[in-house]
Design a protein around this nucleic acid. Structure first.
Length: 528
RNA sequence: GGCUGAGUAGCUCAGCUGGUUAGAGCGCACGACUCAUAAUCGUGAGGUCGCGGGAUCGAGUCCCGCCUCAGCUACCA
């Protein structure tokens, strides 16, 4: 029986040949925020990421570098991909590599089952082949010939005529699932999100599905087809299966039943593999389809899609070296509407860091804790009679916590943060209006002074809990400065869906000096 | 070519099923305050809502046409 509170979230696995850039990091951070939120809420959370290591491209680059592809992959995983996760502070529960035994065995079992159940047949794969590229060309790389080759189809890279070749392949009868897929999209409108992505998927499937070639014989860096080791498995078929092999498919039924099905976060470039091919594979194997497939947008740099080839690829460490991982996480989650394309610029990043993190949240924490230290020897003051202004803050905190949770539930991370930020702004306004420094001048106002600072302190407690998934380092500092660590226990253990419940941090709690959460960045502008 | 989406203040974006003077943040100008990371709070300036038509008492929000941009139109991941 599936666990009702189970939350299994995946990212695409990294193709090891790529160089890590902020686009990869963006997906990871989004997944991490969702995973941390659900984990803190007490849901049975499992967050999976990993690497995709098979395929002709990897074989080629490894060979070109004079090493075995396994060694090549090992090197990249250790030098590039695992460090990326540390750079942006990712809390994944597992990391799967497609060259691991658990994966290769799972893929073999899955293939065998599909074969035994009649979903796979041997056929002829016929396509245009480029001698220069040494591979079959997809339509996108085939163009009409010019000059001497007018009337012929030529390779977009080599501009030379292509040959029509045939290869014996095994095919997955994907076409048989067309109607069931369309029914799925119809019955579960939130299966593919956002709606624009869903529309594209439906349009694609409606125009008719062909069977999918799932094996290759021209090279051998892949998982052998169990009943015919002259073939290796097509990389995408291999890669998609990581989502089930990582949780014990064919090995550990209890674990598999506990985790599956998953929610998948993907870039919109690989939506079709996840929203069409993958559910068809699962249907064929008699497994449940995923809960959700959510496609996020591109990061645009200077108005164009960021790409490695155009040198607009930015390494995540370029951002974190200056601003820190919290700022990276906050910026991309807050500034970009999740599911849409979003513009990245150093100017915007620096501006938001300054205005929202340093001046907004960081300074708020700083001023409240400084006053507690100054007027109450660093102890949380007790609340007295509540005024309308205090009640407004208390009610806003409750409202914001509820709304943020609802937004997270629908993958609207930016809106969740926007809701939480209402409390940041309201607290800054509240403090300015209540002017505790003025109250402190007359001992007759002591009860009022205590009430105001109690309200502000409690507000910080709520913020620390709600923002932990987004800015874990800063909130950890705040949590310990609040004295909440001793009073309430670990921040990660605070039930996030109850964060808005007022009065949890006891009066009298001893607080500690606060390290500056978001130091001002002196450098005026980072290079382009 | 076909399909989908987008074009709203200097910048980044909200505006659901049409309804009083079109909103937010940043930036800018002015003012208040001093607890705080020279931070905070308030006020203000600034828009022919891509262009042209149309049905409506009334449209950024509906219909038609056009312009611009992006994505999809299957087996590189």
């Amino acid at each position: 029986m599936p666990n009702p509170s189970s939350f299994f979230l995946t990212t695409p696995i990294f193709y090891v040949n790529d160089a890590p850039h902020i686009g990869h990091a963006y997906t990871e951070v989004a997944a991490d925020v969702l995973a941390r939120w659900h984990r803190q809420a007490g849901d049975d959370t499992w967050f999976l990421t990993g690497t995709d290591e098979h395929g002709q491209k990897i074989l080629r680059t490894a060979t070109a570098n004079g090493v075995h592809p396994q060694e090549w992959a090992d090197r990249l995983v250790e030098s590039a991909w695992k460090p990326l996760l540390d750079t942006i502070n990712i809390s994944n529960d597992d990391f799967i590599r497609t060259t691991e035994k658990r994966h290769e065995e799972g893929v073999a079992k899955f293939l065998q089952k599909l074969y035994d159940d009649g979903h796979v047949y041997a056929g002829e794969f016929e396509a245009l082949y480029c001698v220069g590229c040494e591979e079959f060309k997809p339509k996108s790389e085939i163009v009409d010939g010019e000059g001497a080759f007018v009337g012929e189809k030529v390779c977009a890279i080599h501009s030379k005529p292509l040959e029509l070749l045939q290869e014996k392949n095994y095919f997955f009868k994907m076409s048989a699932f067309q109607d069931r897929l369309l029914a799925l999209y119809e019955e579960r409108p939130d299966f593919v999100q956002p709606a624009s992505a869903r529309n594209e998927v439906i349009a694609f499937v409606q125009q008719g599905l062909e069977d999918l070639s799932i094996s290759r014989t021209s090279f051998d860096w892949g998982i052998p087809i169990p009943w015919d080791d002259a073939h290796v498995t097509y990389v995408w078929f291999d890669a998609l299966l990581n989502y089930v092999t990582a949780i014990g498919y064919g090995q550990d039924d209890a674990e598999f039943d506990r985790r599956w099905p998953a929610s998948h976060l993907v870039g919109k470039d690989i939506l079709r593999f996840h929203a069409v091919i993958w559910p068809a594979m699962l249907m064929a194997a008699g497994l449940e389809v995923p809960d959700h497939v959510f496609a996020h947008g591109w990061l645009l740099v200077g108005g164009e899609k960021m790409s490695k080839s155009k040198l607009t690829g930015i390494a995540p460490s370029e951002v974190t070296d200056t601003f820190g991982s919290d700022a990276f996480r906050y910026y991309f989650m807050r500034a970009i509407s999740f599911g849409h394309d979003g513009s990245f610029s150093w100017e915007d990043l620096a501006a938001r860091y300054q205005a929202e993190l340093a001046n907004g949240f960081g300074n708020l924490a700083s001023r409240v804790l400084a006053m507690n230290a100054k007027y109450f020897e660093g102890r949380v003051p007790a609340a007295g009679t509540e005024t309308a202004a205090d009640a407004e803050i208390r009610e806003l905190a409750a409202s914001v916590a509820v709304r943020a949770d609802e937004k997270i539930e629908t993958f609207a991370i930016h809106e969740a943060i926007a809701a939480i930020w209402e409390l940041v702004d309201a607290l800054n306004g509240y403090i300015t209006e209540q002017a505790p420094w003025a109250l402190a001048k007359d001992p007759a106002n002591d009860e009022r002074l205590q009430t105001v600072l109690n309200t502000a302190t409690e507000g910080l407690r709520v913020l620390a809990e709600l923002l932990e998934p987004v800015v874990p380092q800063a909130t950890a500092k705040l949590w310990s400065a609040l004295g909440a660590e001793e009073a309430l226990g670990a921040l990660e253990g605070q039930p996030i869906r109850e964060a808005g419940r007022w009065g949890r941090l006891p009066a009298g709690t001893q607080q500690h000096p606060l390290a500056v959460l978001f130091p001002r960045i002196e450098t005026e502008e980072k290079g382009k």
